[in-house]
Write a protein that binds this DNA or RNA. Structure first.
Length: 569
DNA sequence: GCCGTTTTCGGCCCGACTGTTTTCAGTCG
């Protein structure tokens, strides 16, 4: 029995205990134990004393040991015997938790969506204490929607929704300040809802305006401090607005940015200092509530530097604050090494893209249009590539304080050869190799293709190494750890593609690349000027992976970059 | 169920909202 399965079993036990209406702390103890295992980097064999892990005690250790030895859990078996399977999906219904479901089961024998619906229709539920006619109505409505709503939505979709909401919030004059919070602010790949913190002296008016201006499918809650709605968009999405005063803004923003584990850790720390954190401020030992102008001040109050939202995850970031200063951030970025122009499938000319890079304060950049194989994208032949280079030279002459390099995003072909000969490649300043075709080949073949590119002396970088689109397609499933080892061995750059559709490599692989000291380039892959701005998302995502500045190629000076790209020539 | 150098018992993050209640339980984040 491997660690993943042990974790799953512990979570399953928690779920079933919840459905028994068990003490919530007992339930969360099992979840915490699962979490402790997950956070520990060692395998089960490597952990000598499992109870030494915080959150694992006698009870959960017994379960874990039994699982390791027999592959089964007596406790799980017993629970499965008494808790009907059909109750598990019902936990997803908003408004129904373990206690209520336990009651519905014990009092009315409800053990499935069908029997729940029947009991609602027969008006049996309103007879139970704690339930009423509205409960029946709500359950019926939620039952109809069960399975319709997607659990989590990808960052690229939510970004559009956030932009639209930002517009609405900007238009409401009673709002003094606002910000998105929650996992979206932490730059999670997927989020299940969007949170906003809104500072205002007139919550009533703001509430009315929000309900009026947003395209709402359903109002979930509308109180004095919280407005929760389901937006009517292509994919429906839950949005919560927290209405607070300016004084409370910083602590509220911190609180609702989370993560949950980060907040738990912060609260523990506060407690050690005799203080108490809530979304409205920090209660001091003498009972007074202290508020802060900024999140920086809030952290400083606890003797901590500002912890960026992106790294507020497990709570362990509180022990790693020394490393924060060395992390890459948008201010360090001086170049963008992957973009397209009208020569292939981009919307703007070489000159326009170059100018846009200058306006972003960069010192250099690379034009990397598609290669000839990609006909749908008007990929460049060697002849057109040569012509394009002249345009790039012209641009450099006109802009002596900036440097535009001539590059390509060359396809790695399905037969594991490259789209350009070495003669063509050696004329270029910077060569990106990437896969845009035959995603479904066996992993072996995909790796053969990648290896061809890796060992070519003129290739500098592999772009979007897995080809994934977040929440939509898996990509071509390369053996990334192997690719990382090759990159280290052959001195190649791997890309963090900053497009919110891709964010490729992912966090886990970025961390692995860092262990091998593989240089990472955060690139926008822009097909239009506006898309150069996704660099911000890329830089934030890199922070989430704790990526160090030195390892990020776009932070290198023009001289450093030139030295690197010339070394094989 | 887990945890502890003020604790081996009594907390466990804590507050808002809803729907059920006449003061609160359950759910949620």
């Amino acid at each position: 029995m491997n660690k993943k399965m042990v974790i799953k079993t512990l979570e399953k036990i928690a779920l079933l205990l919840e459905l028994q209406g068990e003490n919530p702390f007992k339930v969360s103890a099992f979840r915490k134990a699962a979490n402790a295992l997950e956070l520990d980097e060692r395998s089960l064999n490597e952990i000598e004393d499992i109870t030494a892990l915080k959150g694992i005690g006698k009870g959960t250790a017994t379960v874990i040991h039994e699982l390791i030895e027999t592959g089964q859990s007596t406790q799980l078996k017993e629970l499965e015997e008494v808790v009907p399977k059909g109750l598990i999906p019902l936990l997803k219904l908003p408004g129904l938790g373990g206690k209520k479901l336990a009651k519905l089961y014990s009092e009315l024998g409800i053990d499935s969506a069908e029997s729940l619906r029947a009991a609602c229709v027969a008006q049996q539920i309103r007879q139970l204490a704690g339930f009423g006619p509205k409960s029946e109505e709500k359950i019926l409505k939620e039952l109809d929607q069960l399975g319709e709503r997607s659990e989590r939505l990808p960052i690229w979709y939510l970004q559009q929704i956030v932009n639209e909401i930002n517009e609405v919030l900007r238009s409401i004059t009673e709002i003094q300040k606002f910000s998105v919070a929650g996992s979206f602010r932490r730059v999670s790949e997927m989020s299940k809802d969007i949170d906003f913190i809104v500072a205002t002296e007139k919550p009533e008016q703001v509430k009315d305006q929000l309900l009026k201006q947003l395209t709402i499918k359903e109002v979930v809650a509308a109180g004095d401090t919280k407005v929760s709605v389901v937006l009517d968009a292509e994919d429906v999405v839950n949005v919560d607005f927290r209405l607070v005063t300016m004084k409370e803004y910083a602590t509220a923003l911190h609180h609702f940015t989370g993560s949950k584990d980060h907040n738990v850790r912060m609260r523990q720390l506060a407690k050690e200092q005799g203080k108490k954190i809530s979304e409205y401020g920090v209660e001091q030992p003498d009972g007074t509530i202290m508020t802060f102008d900024t999140e920086e001040d809030f952290f400083a109050h606890f003797g901590l530097p500002f912890i960026p939202p992106m790294v507020r995850e497990s709570g362990k970031e509180l022990e790693r604050v020394d490393e924060l200063e060395g992390l890459v951030s948008l201010e360090h970025i001086v170049s963008d090494l992957h973009m397209h122009t009208t020569w292939s499938d981009g919307a703007h000319t070489v000159k326009e893209m170059g100018q846009a890079l200058i306006e972003r304060g960069y010192t250099h950049g690379v034009i990397t249009d598609h290669s000839q194989y990609l006909k749908v994208a008007n990929g460049l032949t060697p002849e057109r590539l040569k012509k394009q280079r002249l345009e790039i030279y012209d641009f450099n002459e006109a802009n002596p304080d900036f440097r535009l390099f001539a590059g390509t995003e060359m396809d790695i072909l399905p037969n594991a050869t490259l789209d350009f000969d070495d003669d063509v490649l050696k004329e270029l300043d910077f060569v990106i190799a990437s896969i845009h075709s035959s995603f479904s080949q066996p992993q072996e073949k995909i790796m053969e293709r990648l290896f061809t590119a890796i060992q070519n002396p003129y290739v500098h970088m592999i772009a979007h190494p897995t080809g994934r689109i977040i929440g939509q397609r898996e990509g071509y499933n390369p053996d990334v750890p192997q690719l990382i080892q090759w990159a280290a061995e052959y001195g190649k750059i791997l890309e963090l593609n900053a497009s919110p559709y891709r964010l490729d490599l992912c966090i886990e692989h970025l961390m692995m690349a860092m262990e091998y000291n593989v240089p990472i380039a955060i690139n926008t892959d822009a097909h239009a000027i506006e898309q150069l701005d996704v660099m911000e998302i890329g830089a934030k995502y890199a922070q989430k992976a704790w990526l160090k500045k030195e390892l990020v190629v776009n932070t290198w000076s023009l001289e450093q970059f030139e030295t690197f790209i010339r070394k094989n020539k």
